[in-house]
Amino acid sequence: MKKLYDILSLQFELADFESKRSDLAFCKVKASQAISLLTHLRDIHGYTHLVMLTCVDWLEDKQFQLTYLLHNYATKTDLGILVFIDRDHPVMDSLHHLWKQGRVYQRELHEMFGIDFPGSPGVEEPMILEGWQGPPPMRRDFDTKAYSDETYSHRPRVQNEPEQHMKEQLYSED
């Protein structure tokens, strides 16, 4: 995997190569080069299978980590391409022309994280959350607990902590 990384480094600005297992590695690439790197990997290096595309919200760093995971059926190895994009203006090039399922992933990321993929067919159509008014719910600053407390009513309950309860019962005067 390191070899492949070294070869690719000649053409692309890669960074942070991390070999997780002998058959799985991750590396970072600049957002502007990501799609051409993916095309290159698919057409030249046999990474023909797009396993998944997902996003990790690094709220503290104000970044989204897009992860394109590619699989090579010949060498049976996986390469995860990490692309960091600005969380406040999340726009990324689309890969719908490379893999047919790409547009579905991008539609989901648009809905769940609010990332725009200009040119991806139907990217703005709601996928799962028809009629959703709130912010993109998979972002880390969307608090599901607060949302559910506001939206639904709960069966009333009292949680007694053993330590506190024993203090009240046994030695509250101290």
Binding site: K20, F26, V51, M52, V56, T67, L69, D78, G80
Partner: peptide
């Protein structure tokens, strides 16, 4: 972060955990 896959009845099932 890691990714693991297994063969389910429908094919590749995978978990990507960060």
């Amino acid at each position: 972060q890691t990714y693991l896959r297994a063969e389910s009845t429908r094919g590749e099932y995978g978990y990507f955990m960060v």
